[in-house]
């Protein structure tokens, strides 16, 4: 029983990433529709819905029994159930909203419908962009996650990657002017915000929290996450895009968008895997470290009758 099997893995991280990015895209689309009556980008909106759907698929694939996935809608008190419903609504609303800007669909241009869909996109998008953070933050036994910081970190990253995704969209498809004019600056602001809150988060965890938190955060500052976090997420995924977004050049901004998206992906993975750090019971870490990992010869051995 290696510890790595007993934590959520990359599929869930990538789910959180795609779902968060897609959800933010729908959120922005909904706001644009509601308050500006404008279509941010048909491709972008559809991509947003598809991203959330990809996230949902990964969530299902991560399950031990993917074919029974429908059962996750059963416990209204569970955050995962709540998230699942919201993702479903977001996907449907996003697809309908996106297609409502396309002439070939019968519901093209029905304003009333667009407004309703926009409302759903805003609400569900906001929920899907945030709930993973809430989910993780409620884990009292996972010292790196626990607390009210995670929702903020997740929402920030979702919003940033959502903006970035539209910016990248603008490279090869038609987008509303606000995407090219305003979004890079919003994104730059979010990068700065992300930088600040992550530094604060790490600082708070390593100074204020429990011994378990201090131990868990060491992974990020000195341990095996240090490079991924500092060089990957903070520098390449946050600081560099921050600068690029401020350069008034489409290519620079586009690359900034890609890097910010990459940053979001790295961050989700690091965060999800840091769930492996538990509030270890006395002696538990040593105990688990001595258990076999699963590849050992004695475990692989298939005994057969002598004669």
């Amino acid at each position: 029983m290696s510890a790595k099997h007993e934590t959520w893995g990359w599929m869930l991280a990538v789910d959180f990433f795609f779902a968060g990015m897609g959800a933010a895209m729908l959120l922005f689309a909904g706001i644009a529709e509601l308050f500006g009556g404008s279509n941010l980008s048909t491709v972008g909106i559809l991509a947003g819905a598809v991203f959330v759907a990809i996230g949902a698929c990964l969530l299902i694939l991560e399950l031990g029994r993917p074919f029974q996935a429908l059962r996750v809608f059963m416990n209204p008190k569970a955050i995962l159930t709540f998230g699942a419903w919201n993702m479903s609504f977001a996907i449907v609303a996003g697809l309908l909203l996106g297609t409502s800007y396309m002439e070939i669909f019968p519901w093209f241009g029905i304003v009333g419908l667009q407004k309703v869909l926009a409302v759903i996109c805003v609400i569900c998008g906001l929920v899907v962009a945030t709930y993973p953070g809430v989910l993780l933050g409620r884990h009292k036994g996972r010292p790196f996650w626990t607390g009210s910081g995670m929702p903020v970190l997740f929402l920030t990253s979702s919003l940033l990657t959502g903006l970035a995704a539209y910016i990248v969209c603008g490279w090869f498809t038609e987008v509303a002017p606000v995407v090219t004019d305003l979004f890079p600056y919003l994104a730059a602001g979010l990068c700065l915000f992300q930088l600040v809150i992550w530094v604060s988060y790490i600082w708070i965890k390593s100074s204020g929290g429990s011994v378990h938190a201090v131990e868990a955060v060491r992974r990020w500052t000195k341990g095996n996450y240090a490079t991924g976090f500092q060089a990957g997420f903070m520098f390449v995924g946050t600081v560099v895009p921050l600068i690029l977004f401020l350069i008034p050049n489409a290519t620079a901004v586009g690359i900034g968008g890609l890097l910010a998206i990459l940053g979001g992906l790295i961050m989700r993975n690091l965060v999800v895997y840091s769930g492996q750090d538990r509030t270890w019971l006395p002696g538990e870490k040593e105990y688990r470290s001595r258990l076999p990992q699963g590849h050992e010869a004695f475990l692989q051995k298939v005994w057969t009758k002598q004669i």
């Binding site: 258990l291 050992e296 004695f298 475990l299």
Partner: peptide
């Protein structure tokens, strides 16, 4: 040493 259920607890 050949009984996995036991060896698992102390494999080395």
């Amino acid at each position: 040493f050949n009984i996995k259920e036991l060896r698992f607890l102390r494999h080395e």
